[in-house]
């Protein structure tokens, strides 16, 4: 299914608003069939990046190519490959769903005889068939959001950019939209910005975290999950050994005693000490009764990266002993170099 065409290519993008750098030196690529999750705290530059990608803002520096077409030099070709749902869905409240989608289809240069097929397809994919004759202004927020998504996919563009698509939806709709996004990822490239971290884990192939206008993490979900799972071990013993004994085991980086029986070990995943601990426990009769590889959630990584730069790590609920943020991306070999640069700054 997946091949290697680069559908979105962003090179050294910067945008300034007066003295404020909204985004600075952002570069990335998205291939066909890839769903890229774009994460970041408020005001990090997510929406600005998306507006530049879709031609709603001109970059101060750098270039954007959609399917090989430069968004500034060949805007029409680039934009015909593009579907965009902004933060606020761009809907006309006085039109019915059908009229609105008809307008969008014509705006995107769908041939007159193809229009009704495209509308039916988009309505069916977004679950709008029942409300086709209703005024958009009278629909609930969730349905308006779906109309916005339908608008973005009506011309089956090769690149779909969704800015917080699940805002205002109920849990069932969220699941539907997520599966729609996954489905879109089959033939299109999707960029998805969101605050909801589990959404990224369940829908995206790759995650990018942006903070204060800089990319601070680019990681595939597979690598991320692997890494999330293997850094910490939670151990409980009936006859607990001393901290020293645990620290001396190869592969253990740090030991934190939670209570008399329970320990939290920060381990080196490349030199996994789990086997050694189990063996030692049997040999020395420590009475090991709990061994849980502690999965860090994406949320923790997110907090760690975004907050450490703001020097408020303590409020994030993480212990100060956790490894410095450099650790997060450094184990993956395919991650581009700019994230390290971002991390160090």
């Amino acid at each position: 299914m997946k091949n290697n065409d680069v559908l979105i290519s962003v090179e050294q993008l910067s945008r300034h608003y007066g003295p404020i750098n909204a985004i600075e030196d952002v570069s990335f690529e998205v291939r066909r069939g890839e769903v890229l999750g774009f994460l970041g705290p408020n005001g990090a530059g997510k929406s600005t990046t998306m507006q530049i990608l879709t031609g709603n803002l001109a970059p101060s520096l750098g270039r954007v190519r959609i399917n090989g077409f430069d968004i500034l030099d060949q805007p029409k070709q680039a934009k015909s490959e593009l579907g965009y749902l902004p933060e606020t869905p761009p809907i006309y409240r006085e039109l019915t769903v059908f009229e609105y989608l008809h307008y969008c289809a014509r705006l995107n240069k769908i041939q007159r005889n193809q229009v009704s097929k495209a509308i039916d397809n988009a309505m069916q994919r977004c679950g709008l068939t029942d409300v086709r004759k209703r005024l958009i202004g009278n629909l609930s927020k969730g349905y308006q959001q779906r109309v916005g998504i339908a608008q973005a996919i009506i011309h089956s563009p090769s690149v779909v950019i969704l800015d917080e698509p699940t805002v205002g939806l109920d849990p069932i709709q969220i699941r539907e939209i997520r599966s729609l996004i996954r489905e879109l990822g089959g033939e299109h490239s999707v960029i998805l910005s969101t605050h909801i971290l589990p959404e990224v884990q369940s829908t995206c192939d790759r995650v990018q975290i942006i903070n204060q206008g800089k990319l601070v993490l680019t990681e595939s979900i597979g690598d991320l999950n692997e890494q999330l799972q293997s850094e910490y071990l939670l151990l409980s013993f009936k006859q607990a050994p001393g901290i020293r004994a645990l620290e001396s085991i190869g592969g253990v980086l740090q030991v934190e005693q939670k209570n008399k029986e329970q320990f939290r070990l920060h381990i080196n995943p490349e030199n996994d000490p789990t086997d050694k601990i189990v063996n030692m426990s049997v040999g020395q009769n420590w009475g090991l009764y709990e061994l849980t590889p502690e999965r860090r959630s994406l949320e923790e990584i997110f907090m760690e990266i975004t907050c450490s730069e703001q020097k408020i790590i303590d409020s994030s609920g993480l212990n100060s002993e956790t490894q410095p943020q450099l650790d997060v991306g450094s184990q993956s070999q395919d991650s581009p170099p700019q994230e390290h640069k971002g991390n160090e700054q």
């Binding site: 879709t54 709603n56 934009k79 015909s80 965009y84 761009p90 969008c104 705006l107 995107n108």
Partner: peptide, 14 residues
């Protein structure tokens, strides 16, 4: 004001 300009700006229209 209603932020619907984005629809026109991201469509292949000059």
């Amino acid at each position: 004001r209603n932020r619907t300009l984005a629809l026109l700006f991201s469509a292949p229209v000059s």
